[in-house]
Amino acid sequence: MYEFKYHRPATVRQAANLLLKNEDAKVIAGGHTLLPVMKQRLASPPHLVDLSHIEGLDGIEMKGRSLVIGATATHNTVATSAIVGEAIPALAELAGLIGDPAVRHKGTIGGSLANNDPTADYPAACLALGATIVTNKRRLKPEEFFQGLFTTSLESDEIITRVMFPVPKKAAYIKFRNQASRYALVGVFVAKRPSDVRVAVTGAGSEGVFRVTSFEEALKKRFSHKALDGMTVPADGLNGDLHGSAEYRAHLIAVLARRAVEAATAKA
């Protein structure tokens, strides 16, 4: 790891100022992505701005019909929160599938979204549920926020402060884990919302998380796994690597989407 200067702001405003003043400064929260890449010297930020001491950034609450999760809420906090379990149980389950227990004690929802790993779980939830990602500057829809592989529309002095999830009628997330890394080989989040149905896929797309509109239209007509009978997705644009070919991932998307719909309907 290369040398850096460590900063510990007490407020989001101070943190943003530190980012503005120090070129190439990086935000750290749980550190479970940033520290490993710094150890490998794939990243060498000269300044680290630690968000973990900012008060009130990790809260979870209901606001009207939306579940609001603070950016530094850990995966364990989300997985075990009674508020999340009541409002969107699929989201609590998703958080409980990330990494392992010790990793879940440190990793945060804001960090996961800002990193936009193409195999991370939270991006699928944000896209399927139509979440709003709130920063110190603005509010972003997932379609604006996620910009491809490890890329978001966050500006260099922009910090995620919370994520707002409108409560769906039904939802479920099914993940096919890479046995070694615990990341999603493919993960499918299905949400039946008041106005539409969304199917979001992580782990498979070469540009990161994406929606399967053909599945969504079929499910909007009839929200049953049978509505997806015989439906497939093309392997074009999907990842193929030593863990699985693009064709295998395409197959998994159809299988997991059916299972997710089954799980979502069983819960109701």
Binding site: R8, G31, L35, A102, V103, K106
Partner: peptide, 27 residues
Amino acid sequence: CDTSQCGACVVHVDGKAVKACTMLAVM
């Protein structure tokens, strides 16, 4: 492993298990 995979470095911070190889001492 020094990559937060193996768990040989697990300690408790404020009563919660964490991997001490993936946390800075300043934190």
